[in-house]
C-alpha cells in the first residue's frame, strides 16, 4: 500500500536539513521518525524539513511534522518547513498549523532567514 519514500539528512551552517521525498503515510512514517531520532540538534540551530520531493502526506505524515517541530523545540532549536505544496498548505491551514510552522519556498531560503537570536522564524507560538 505504501509507495516509495526516502529521507535524507544533511548538515548546513545553520543546522540540519531533513528532506522527505515520496509518500509519507502510516507505512513510511516510522522511517521518518527513525531518521529524526538520529538527529543531534543544538540550541540555537535550525531544523528545516524540506518537502520539495514529497508527493503525498496523510495524517501520519502530519504527525511526523508535528513531532519534528516538538523535537526542535525541545532542543531549543528553531523549526521551519520548506517547499510546502499547495495541497499540504491547505491541510496545515485546516489543522491550524500554519501559525506553528514557519514556511519557506526552499530549504536555502529557510537557512538564509534563520537568525538564532530572532524568535519570529523559529515558529514559537
Amino acid at each position: 500500500m505504501s509507495g516509495v519514500f526516502a529521507v535524507t539528512t544533511r548538515t548546513v551552517p545553520t543546522g540540519t536539513v531533513l528532506a522527505f521525498a515520496g509518500e509519507l503515510d502510516s507505512g513510511t512514517a516510522p522511517a521518518a521518525h527513525g531518521a529524526m531520532t538520529k538527529l543531534s540538534l543544538n540550541a540555537g540551530d535550525q531544523l528545516v524539513v524540506d518537502l520539495a520531493g514529497l508527493e503525498f502526506c496523510d495524517s501520519s505524515g502530519i504527525t511526523v511534522l508535528v513531532s519534528a517541530h516538538n523535537l526542535a523545540r525541545g532542543a531549543g532549536a528553531g523549526f521551519a518547513l520548506a517547499a510546502v505544496s499547495r495541497q499540504l498548505g491547505r491541510t496545515l491551514d485546516i489543522l491550524g498549523l500554519t501559525g506553528l510552522f514557519a514556511t519557506y519556498p526552499t530549504a536555502d531560503d529557510a537557512s538564509a532567514a534563520w537568525s538564532p537570536a530572532g524568535s519570529r522564524e523559529d515558529g514559537v507560538v
Binding site: 504527525t63 508535528v66 517541530h69 489543522l95 491550524g96 501559525g99
Partner: peptide, 8 residues
Amino acid sequence: RGMLVGGV
C-alpha cells in the same frame, strides 16, 4: 487557527 489537539 484552531490547532489540532494533542500534537503540541
